[in-house]
């Protein structure tokens, strides 16, 4: 297997995906193996003389002027989210520091 249990647990932890749901955990190891085996076909071609292509437009990505274009949108951004997500303009999450 290209991805064993230990590797899978590390990947899942990195991606913050839980493996607790049994139906998902049972099939994902085999799925990942099959997909990775399938995509490994790209190794059959020699690319030693080829540059990487990060996206299809060759021009350098633009930067914009360092100018203020929008005012504070906090109230607008929090208008339609559930009340339990925020208080006094701040987002609420489980306690991080004991």
């Amino acid at each position: 297997m290209l991805v064993d249990k230990k590797k899978l647990e590390k990947l899942a932890h990195t991606a913050k995906i839980s493996l607790e749901e049994k139906a998902f955990a049972d099939r994902i190891e085999a799925d990942l193996h099959n997909i990775l085996e399938f995509v490994a076909e790209i190794n059959e071609v020699d690319t030693s003389e080829v540059d990487v292509m990060e996206h299809s437009q060759s021009e350098t990505l633009r930067t914009r002027d360092d100018a203020v274009t929008e005012s504070n949108l906090r109230e607008e951004m929090q208008k339609d989210i559930p009340d339990s997500y925020h208080a006094d303009g701040l987002y609420l999450v489980p306690k991080v520091v004991e």
Binding site: L36, V39, A40, I42, N43, V45, T47, V50, D51, V52, M53, E54, S56
Partner: peptide
């Protein structure tokens, strides 16, 4: 072996 390699094959195809 996967991501960089794929970006090179992408260039070949393009």
């Amino acid at each position: 072996s996967y991501y960089r390699k794929a970006q090179k094959v992408r260039k070949l195809i393009a």
